[in-house]
Write a protein that binds this DNA or RNA. Structure first.
Length: 675
DNA sequence: ATGGGTAGCGCG
DNA sequence: AAAGCGCGCTACCCAT
């Protein structure tokens, strides 16, 4: 294990603030160990520096094939089989059975896999200079050895200097391989996250568009992993530009963090960098799944889908692609002559589940189609689409992104672990996928989620008397709502009334209308209107607050969460009714959803800290729900610490809400069981 | 072949 | 008069 002795910082010895940036940074290519040593000495004087690594995939195709299937396909080469998963090709598919398989077979995709990629170049940038250190580009010219480079750079990376980059997490993970999987410590300075806090509406946050916007500098080179294969000088130029741009953007924008008038921004940025640390750790761990379970499920669902499909096609009487909304529409509305109740935004006749459910009363086809869609979704997204993301150690390392959701929530991709099926379903066992998220041997899963956090925030924000009352006295809010709507005592509320009240609470709170209630509860529109009116009569503070938020948004151009996370909504003053109404609903939603996101972020950082020293690790975050895998002997300690860490959320030293935060915790062998 | 837009649907 | 917001992934479809 290499030593981790960070150079002692004697405050004031380093440059307090780097000297002004010249328009052209001096750029050097490092060729010898001596030059490298000098470079490290030079950068040691800086409090913060930018860095960027270039990587290349070490591994190419991730095969979906099981050993048996591989053997089988060897003898069945003549029949059309998907080279990725080995399944027979569906009609209209040429080489791969699905886009997922095609992507899985795409060569360069795994370069993004920070566990297996190889670093072949590192560039650094600081005040007035930028340097590039090639260490593995396929060029005959002399380059430094990778091990020498990482050894020499260690005092820089493993120090309390701020490490700046665009999407710094990727680079940190990429280099951690060369330090026994240890991540360089904070502080971090992620440019993308900083810019996102300042303006969440840019759409694109890549270096090219950011440097164009903030530095007036345009560069078009988009090599990505291709950089490895281009001519040396060009590859070096490409590598250094990213570090340079990251540094210049940080230089330009980060001073805002120290402005007295922007303390909320500074708080949120520090929070995001703390969250980043947690996310990197989560990605290093990964979520353990039952790989064999997925492999077993695949053929079962394929058969189920084929059977259902064949049945429907027989009913239809001719060839039809059941995945095509157009063909489905023709069949339902032209051939069967069923009444069209909804059209889509572009005027197409809707074949969505809601429409099919209504049509099911008049014909048996729609119900079958619903069943087909159910199975199809499960198979394509959650089984076939999921398996390529499972690593060889049976773990899934998804990417949690901090600069996507404008309310400040995390988003999750490759694969998205925040939309794994959970609810009851008629045609497929709704929780079957969650059952495959299991605890590794000797461990259990702890699932902790905030109870009704958005409604609690709504109560806090609106100060509505009865909403606050319910939560302060730990009452059943849905029951209270039912009692208020139907004007009956709480002990006389029936199951159906409570269900409608529950839907009302979740929908009407965020500017939902009567139509929404009708749809969710299956009651008539007049009935739904009554509920709508009664609900707002019971909780008058909600509409009042909504009006105030819209007005304030109109005046300032933005709304914000309790922690000051802003959402700029220029459409709030649009003359287009549709646009303005949309912005108004977003304005009302943001302080709720965004505050919940802030709380969850503070919570996950506190949980991460609280679990240090225990045999327990965070693996997933699903907005208001955290999943921890934990050794059985540490479960009691862990649950207590998790609860404390999640419930004790403060703002300026005081509890963030007037009403308590409540956390539900479950323990089990798999995600479904623990919930 | 590849990219963008649309419809649809999974979650909180 | 009528009104949910926030995401990511898949397949289809049509244009380049």
């Amino acid at each position: 294990m290499p030593s981790r002795t960070a150079p002692v910082t004697r405050k004031g010895e380093r440059l307090a603030r780097p000297r002004p940036l010249s328009s052209t940074l001096v750029t050097k290519t490092v060729r010898t160990v001596d030059e490298l040593k000098q470079l490290v000495r030079d950068y040691s004087r800086f409090e913060e520096f930018a860095f960027d690594v270039e990587t290349v995939a070490s591994r190419h195709v991730r095969s979906l094939q099981t050993p048996e299937r591989k053997l089988l396909s060897r003898y069945a080469e003549r029949t059309a089989l998907c080279p990725s998963c080995g399944q027979p090709l569906p009609p209209r598919r040429r080489t791969y059975c699905s886009d997922v398989c095609q992507k899985a077979a795409a060569k360069d995709k795994p370069a993004l896999d920070t566990r297996t990629n190889t670093v072949w170049c590192i560039s650094l940038a600081g005040p007035g200079r930028s340097d590039v250190v090639p260490c593995g580009h396929p060029d005959s010219r002399r380059q430094l050895h990778r091990t020498d480079v990482f050894e020499a750079l260690e005092p820089l990376f493993f120090s309390d200097r701020r490490k700046v980059n665009q999407n710094v997490g990727f680079d940190l993970l990429s280099i951690s391989k060369y330090y026994d999987d240890e991540l360089p410590p904070p502080p971090y300075g992620d440019v993308m996250t900083l810019v996102f806090l300042i303006n969440e509406n840019l759409g694109r946050y890549n270096l090219g568009s950011l440097s164009h916007r903030y530095l007036g500098y345009e560069y078009a080179e988009k090599l990505g992993e291709e950089a490895y294969r281009v001519e040396f000088e060009r590859a070096m130029r490409y590598s250094i530009t990213d570090a340079k741009m990251a540094w210049m953007l940080w230089w330009k924008i980060s001073p805002r963090l120290t402005e007295k008038t922007r303390q909320k921004l500074a708080f949120l940025f520090d929070l995001e960098m703390d969250v980043l640390e947690v996310l990197l750790d989560m990605r290093r761990t990964g979520a353990f799944v039952d790989f064999q379970g997925f492999r077993d499920l695949h053929p079962t669902l394929v058969k189920q889908l084929n059977d259902t499909g064949a049945e429907i096609k027989q009913m239809v009487g001719h060839e039809i692609n059941l995945n095509s909304t157009q063909q489905l529409g023709k069949y339902l509305y032209d051939e069967l002559g069923l009444p069209c109740l909804w059209i889509t935004e572009t005027g197409q006749r809707s074949t969505a589940a809601a429409a099919l459910k209504v049509l099911a009363r008049r014909h048996k086809a729609p119900r079958k189609i619903l069943a087909y869609k159910d199975v199809s979704k499960l198979l394509t997204v959650y089984v076939a689409g999921f398996m390529p993301h499972i690593d060889d150690d049976s773990r899934v390392r998804a990417s949690f992104n901090q600069a996507v959701a404008k309310t400040g929530r995390l988003s999750c991709s490759a694969p998205n672990l925040q939309n794994i099926p959970a609810r009851y379903r008629e045609n497929t066992e709704g929780t079957m996928i969650r059952q495959l998220f299991v605890a590794p041997p000797g461990k259990v899963l702890i699932v902790a989620d905030y109870s009704q956090i958005e409604l609690r925030i709504l109560a806090h924000q609106t100060k509505d008397r009865l909403l606050v009352y319910a939560y302060k006295h730990e009452l059943d809010l849905h029951l209270q709502t039912a009692s208020l709507i139907y004007k009956v005592p709480q002990d006389q509320v029936n199951v159906e009334q409570r269900a409608i009240a529950k839907n009302s609470n979740f929908n009407l709170a965020f500017e939902g209308g009567p139509g929404r209630i009708r749809e969710m509860s299956g009651i008539s529109l007049t009935e739904a209107e009554k509920v709508y009116n009664a609900w707002h009569e019971a909780y008058p503070g909600v509409k009042k607050w909504g009006k105030w938020v819209k007005r304030s948004c109109f005046e300032r151009g933005y709304v914000e969460t309790l922690y000051g996370r802003k959402r700029r909504l220029p459409d709030i003053s649009s003359s287009d009714n549709r646009l303005r109404s949309y912005a108004e609903r977003q304005a009302v939603n943001h302080p709720i959803q965004g505050t919940a996101a802030d709380i969850a972020k503070i919570g996950i950082v506190q949980v991460h800290r609280a679990l240090q020293g225990l045999d327990a690790a965070l693996t997933l975050q699903i907005h208001d729900e955290f999943i921890v895998e934990c050794a059985e002997r540490d479960v009691d300690k862990a649950t207590a610490k998790i609860r404390e860490a999640m419930e004790d959320i403060r703002l300026r030293g005081r509890p963030v809400l007037d009403i308590p935060l409540e956390v539900n915790i479950g323990v089990g062998a798999n995600w479904s069981e623990a919930k």
